[in-house]
Computed example of a mutant assay.
Amino acid sequence: MKKTSLTLFATASLLAVGVAQAGPPVEVTFKNLGTQPATLKLVTSNESTTFQIANPKPDQTVQPGSQTHMRVQRVVSPDINAAMVRYTIGSKTCAFGTTYQMRTLAGGIKKPEWTKTATPSGGATCQATIISMAADYSWVVEFTMK
């Protein structure tokens, strides 16, 4: 009984530490503005990790005129988070990314930075837009493709 209690306590402690070390969450919306279904394609390890930790998971197929949503929060550091996703429509591909990093400047001043990228190939039109940033450093990003 003591061994089980110790194991449960240790597990709970590790989970609590993990939550305390999580970076701010990002809410991601992907919108298919094309005329054919968009298909999720995991190519890089960052895209695979994003999909694994997303809650809810993004749809693997997004119909024309539709959208999918995911929330991503990495448990690496309270000072970083990122989400990467790639969708294809036929031969068109959009690789999207967004990151948050708390930078420490000279004198110990901390400055939050958010980035977004949308990399097209095959004639795709891709756009990434940061919609909002909150006081707790969480943010909302929208990725569109056609």
Rank of each mutant, 00 (worst) to 15 (best):
G107W: 15
T98C: 04
F51Q: 08
Q60M: 03
T88G: 08
Q73L: 05
I53H: 06
V85T: 05
I80A: 01
H69P: 01
T93G: 06
V85C: 01
C94D: 14
N55M: 10
K57Q: 10
T99Y: 07
I89Y: 02
P78A: 00
P56V: 01
G65W: 12
P56I: 02
A83M: 06
Y100N: 04
P58F: 01
T88D: 10
Q67P: 00
F96A: 12
I80T: 10
K92N: 05
T61Q: 10
F51I: 01
R71H: 06
L105T: 08
T88R: 12
T88N: 12
P56E: 02
I53V: 15
F51H: 09
M84Q: 09
G65R: 05
Y87I: 03
F96R: 08
L105I: 12
I89E: 08
G108H: 09
R74E: 03
T99S: 07
F96S: 12
T61K: 07
G65L: 10
T68V: 04
R86M: 07
T98W: 07
Q63T: 08
I53K: 08
K57W: 04
A83N: 05
Q60N: 02
A54M: 12
V62S: 12
R86C: 03
N81R: 02
Q101H: 12
T98S: 13
R103K: 05
V62T: 06
T99A: 07
Q73K: 05
L105E: 15
T99Q: 10
R103L: 14
R86Q: 13
R86K: 11
Y87T: 06
V62A: 13
I80L: 05
V75R: 13
L105H: 11
N55T: 13
S91D: 14
A82P: 11
M70S: 00
T98G: 02
S91Q: 15
Q101R: 09
M102P: 04
A106D: 15
T50V: 06
S66E: 09
P78L: 01
G107S: 15
L105S: 12
T93Q: 15
M70H: 00
A82I: 05
S66M: 10
N81V: 00
H69Q: 12
Q63F: 11
I89V: 11
A106G: 13
I80Q: 01
G65I: 00
Q101F: 15
A95Q: 14
V75F: 15
